[in-house]
Design a binder for these strands. Structure first.
Lengths: 124, 124
DNA sequence: CCGCATCCGCAGCGATACTG
DNA sequence: CAGTATCGCTGCGGATGCGG
């Protein structure tokens, strides 16, 4: 819906699309979890160890919503004690590339932004 | 910090980078404003008209923080009544490409996600 | 080991009103 | 026209505890 306007322009009506994207990946944990799972399937507890700082509650919650969107798959093995493994789906994997684009951008421009902030703050 | 690991992996310690990105563009309005300004410089009031649904307060606030990060520039003309124009900086423009990557992804996979959700919800 | 429910603090955001 | 201040709501997300 925007891809046909030269350099870009996310305005006009791409608004809804952007809001969609943000509501899906803009929360605190979704991307971190997908990033973790990209290394390979993991159990609930492993995730909780590896995704630093996430609470039990939020891990459950976020995994649910990712599963609902088809970005992450859940397979539970009927054993005792129960074992549940999570993995990125093919769809989930396709998300990683564009996200990495952003990560690279942040990496590349982190310093400049930092300097800009200091300059701005000094001007008070 | 991640760019050297084949397909990807945003986990391990790219965490901080991802959090950085999210805190900068993950809010409700930043991307929409940058998208608007990409079409050309605009005055405060024009932005408020064009960015649908934004409040006076949030427009001021978001513009400030974008300006602070060096993504948007502010030039005020000392007239009466006052006139202030906002524009994307070169740095701000470099952000648009990676964001469009995400927008395209959302566009391309919107339907599949939608179906996945319905399937998931039916399973209750 | 894993999931769900409850309680609650806190930040984001909107509405409104007032200044230059 | 542009910016600032105050107030109140709402929802995210953390802590904790119970159940399977």
């Amino acid at each position: 819906m925007l891809e046909d306007r030269g350099p870009c322009s996310a305005g006009h009506d791409g608004s809804s699309t952007i809001k969609d994207v943000l509501s899906r990946i803009g929360d605190k944990w979704s991307l971190l979890i997908i990033g973790m799972l990209d290394a390979g399937p993991q159990r609930f507890t492993a995730l909780q160890r590896n995704v630093t700082g996430i609470s039990h509650r939020m891990l459950t919650h976020t995994l649910r919503s990712l599963q609902r969107d088809g970005l992450v798959s859940r397979t539970s093995y009927p054993e005792i004690p129960p074992r549940v493994e999570y993995a990125v789906t093919p769809l989930g994997r396709t998300l990683i590339a564009p996200v990495l684009g952003l990560v690279h951008w942040a990496d590349a421009n982190h310093d400049e932004i930092q300097r800009s902030r200091e300059a701005f703050d000094d001007a008070r």
